[in-house]
Simulated assay, not measured.
Amino acid sequence: MHFDGAGGTQVASPVVVAVTGVMQAAVSNRGTNYKPARRSGDIVASARAAVADLVGGDPAGVVFGASATALTYLVARTLAQGWGPGDEIVVTRLDHDANVRPWIQAAESVGATVRWADVDVRGGELPVAQFRELIGPRTRLVAVTAASNATGTMPAVREIAAIAHAAGVLTFVDGVHSTAHRVTDVKELGADFYVTSAYKWSGPHYAAVVADPAIWEPLEPVKLVPSPKSVPERFEFGTLSFELLAGITAAVDHLAGLTGATGGTRRERLVESLTAVTAYENGLLERLLTGLEKIDGVTVLAAPADRCPTVSFRLAGQAPAETARILGEQNICVSNGDYYAVEYFEAAQLRDSGGAVRASIYHYNTEDEIDRLLEALRAAGPSSLG
């Protein structure tokens, strides 16, 4: 039973077929002179359109890369070329380190100042009011997650972005954990940059960062002299992985078909599918939370009611790694540790003692699986290794 979707989902069958199909066909570097070159170009264009449909963006603003971390470093280093001493950035203690460390390191490299938005550990929230104090005339960027990969908390990104935009500040939103569970519209969200990883929504290990082409246009990344100068190509280093891009398109089509709808645009089908996914996963989440409340010794890390279907918890007297091992021996896949949410677990004073156990629900999970997880936890009991 796979309760580790926050760490990576199982790949949908059409994705495997698409990836294999490209690797079995004749493809080459993109061009127009012969069919394999044109095929590669078509694969890239299709993937840009698919990601744009998934998040409500512009295909011309979709940049691909090996991972969300790599893409965040790319954007951070590029933006930092325009920063200097006295400039400020804002990061949060709720975020995955991939949306924290690249910004801190970029700021440090040019002498800019880092300001921190604190998480309310007791309630699991990221209070919005603090951003009014943190964002000022020298702020250049606010980096914030759309959903915590540790607790499922979904900060009020729209409100945070509105505060930032009122001050002329860019926002970089980590959508890696949220994209699979909610309908995403980057414009409505207020995300100037939005990063997402396909392996979190049934696809391959490849990622995209999406922004309006007008935002990309003035930015100049460090790149090879003969590589493309156009947007978005100038932000993509080397030859793209055509087979993985085909897998991304297949994954988006898979998500768009979850309800069986065939009419309307792909974007419309995605909205219908992900709306249904949210409702279904919320039902499973409620079942899990209700069950955990009834198990003696279980402490659930706090999060608001409106959250992604991800739960972190600890079992009294038992190290999180031991709990995960016991469950793993029963073929119940959960994560343990800090899941790269370093600042959150430091704030919660849990990192040094092993973090927590994470059960993350995806739309292929079932009520029966939730019940089996709860039963296994009831039987787990404290360990002498705790």
Rank of each mutant, 00 (worst) to 15 (best):
T310H: 10
A191K: 04
T265M: 07
H177Q: 13
G111K: 04
S312L: 05
P204Q: 12
E281H: 00
Q318E: 12
L245M: 13
R234F: 00
G86F: 09
T139P: 01
L126Q: 10
L377D: 13
V144G: 06
E243Q: 11
R140I: 10
G56P: 05
R269E: 08
S202Y: 13
P228F: 03
V222F: 04
A156N: 15
V231N: 10
E88M: 00
Q24A: 15
S230P: 01
Q130K: 08
R307D: 09
T78M: 10
S40I: 03
S67F: 01
A76C: 04
Y194F: 15
I160R: 07
A50D: 10
Y339M: 10
A251I: 11
I326Q: 14
T153Y: 04
I326C: 08
W116F: 01
P232G: 04
L244R: 15
M23Q: 15
G260R: 08
D120A: 14
A164I: 01
S384P: 00
A166F: 02
R30S: 13
A180V: 01
T265K: 05
A162G: 01
A303N: 07
V63K: 01
V90F: 07
L54W: 03
V110E: 09
V334R: 06
F237V: 14
A180T: 07
P309A: 01
G317C: 03
D120P: 12
I332K: 00
R132I: 00
L285M: 10
S383D: 15
W83C: 07
K294P: 00
E217C: 00
A256E: 06
R267I: 05
G317R: 04
A37H: 05
R287E: 14
W201S: 07
N99L: 13
H363F: 09
T151S: 12
T69K: 12
I295N: 10
A324T: 11
A276W: 02
A107L: 02
A256S: 07
R132M: 11
Q349N: 12
A180W: 08
I361W: 02
V110S: 04
D118G: 03
L134M: 11
I248T: 13
V100I: 15
Y280M: 09
M23S: 12
A321I: 05
L126H: 08
L189T: 10
A107G: 11
D352I: 00
A324E: 13
F242Y: 15
G291T: 02
S312T: 14
N331M: 06
K229D: 14
A6C: 12
A12M: 10
D95A: 15
R132T: 14
E281D: 09
G257K: 04
L292W: 11
P36Q: 05
L274G: 00
S383W: 03
T278Q: 11
G56I: 02
T278V: 03
D4N: 12
Q81M: 09
A60W: 01
G152W: 02
A106R: 08
I104A: 09
A18L: 07
A60R: 14
V195L: 01
V357S: 10
E286T: 14
G57P: 01
